[in-house]
Simulated scan of single mutants.
Amino acid sequence: MASLNVYSVLVVLFLTCGAVMATKENDQIIKDNNCETKMGLPCVVEAFMSIFNIGSISNKCCGELVVLRKFCHLALVKRTVENPLFKDLNPATIIAKSI
């Protein structure tokens, strides 16, 4: 079974939740480093839930996050926080949880 990538999850999220207002800097980092293709869907969901909700990261997904690298992870989190759906959340808190 083909694994969906981060991009697929973000597209679904943004299509169902509102327009994306990402900064060019984050988009450029994501594009230049192929950040959206480095994690499988189950780990994307697990990471998303642990950052924006309550949960933890399994060892398997922790390994995928390490492969993703910090700059990709931070750019993806920042781009997600810029979505109008998350306007009521404190970006500093979300970024701190993502670390």
Rank of each mutant, 00 (worst) to 15 (best):
S98M: 08
N26A: 14
E46N: 03
N53I: 02
S3M: 10
T37S: 14
V20E: 12
A19K: 13
K70S: 13
K31I: 00
H73I: 01
N34C: 08
K24T: 13
L89V: 01
L15K: 14
E36R: 04
C17Y: 08
V45I: 15
M21Y: 12
D27Q: 14
G18E: 09
A2E: 13
H73E: 07
E82W: 01
G55D: 07
L76T: 04
V66H: 08
D88R: 12
A96S: 12
V20W: 05
Q28C: 06
A92H: 00
L65V: 07
P84V: 02
K38I: 06
S50K: 12
V20I: 07
A47G: 01
G18C: 10
A2T: 08
Y7H: 08
L15M: 11
I51P: 01
V20G: 12
V9M: 10
G40R: 14
A96M: 10
P91T: 02
F71P: 01
A2C: 11
M21R: 14
N59Q: 12
S98I: 03
E25M: 04
R79L: 11
K78N: 14
K38D: 03
K60L: 11
V11G: 00
A47H: 01
P42M: 11
Q28M: 09
S98R: 00
S8H: 14
K31S: 12
L89T: 02
T93K: 09
F71T: 08
F14M: 06
I29L: 13
M49S: 07
F14V: 00
C17Q: 15
N33K: 15
I30W: 09
L13H: 13
A75F: 06
L89R: 07
A96Y: 11
V77Q: 06
L85R: 10
V44P: 01
L41K: 01
L65A: 05
S50R: 11
Q28V: 01
P84I: 06
E46D: 03
V81G: 02
V9E: 06
G18F: 10
V44N: 01
Y7N: 12
V66M: 06
C62H: 10
K87D: 11
T37L: 10
G18V: 02
L74H: 04
E46M: 08
P84R: 03
L76K: 02
M39Q: 09
N34A: 12
I54W: 01
